[in-house]
Amino acid sequence: MTSKVFKDAKAALFDMRDGVSVMSGGFGLCGIPENSILEIRRLGIKNLHAISNNIGNSGRGLAWLLKEKQISQATCSYVGGNPDLEEQMLANEIEVTLVPQGTFSERIRAAGMGIRGFYTPAGSGTEIAEGKESRTFDVPCLLELPLTADFAIIKAQKGDPYGNLWFKETARNFSPLMAMAAKVTIVEVEELVELGEILPENVHLPGVFVQRIYQGNDYENTIEIPIFEDEK
């Protein structure tokens, strides 16, 4: 049996090439695959189509690749808080497709689940409805199609050699959906554990959706906006 376990990011990302599409998990900087992103930067891969909710934020995450002009196309839902993206977008240096976040996550889920399309009210009566098939059920809805990618790079707190994953708190967000949708899913984990260590009922994403897994290191786990309870 070939193992899914790779030594590090360099080993796991051996076949990344210019022009591929890459889904990258995380909400803002929460739950981002730091090691895989830094490896893509080191490899100097160009012309990427990045699919990610924020395409980095506050100069970090996928913004590391934006700074090196490695991303030519981006599909995301939110640009606020990402000056690198906003700047390249207004200068027409990058092609950005904005997708409502619920539609974004459901299109990714649909790709992984074999759903060929679905109707949603989100965006009807707005600019994003232009060119889309619409149909009225109880309310007007738009036809949305699955969103897939060549690779998904995601991070989990714990993973085992089969690729069963467990996510911490709100770091889960888009990651399990992207793992289901991409042709090749590469997972980095803070803790690579033995098979069975994640109890079956605690598996958030079954390993069947994962092709490669490695133990990551040197995580920054940046907190973007720390706000604390008033000490009264």
């Binding site: 939110y78 606020g80 207004l90 409502p100 976040q101 539609t103 949603t120």
Partner: peptide, 10 residues
């Protein structure tokens, strides 16, 4: 441009 985030769904 901030993007719609989740607002169009919400």
């Amino acid at each position: 441009v901030t993007g719609m985030g989740g607002a169009m769904d919400l």
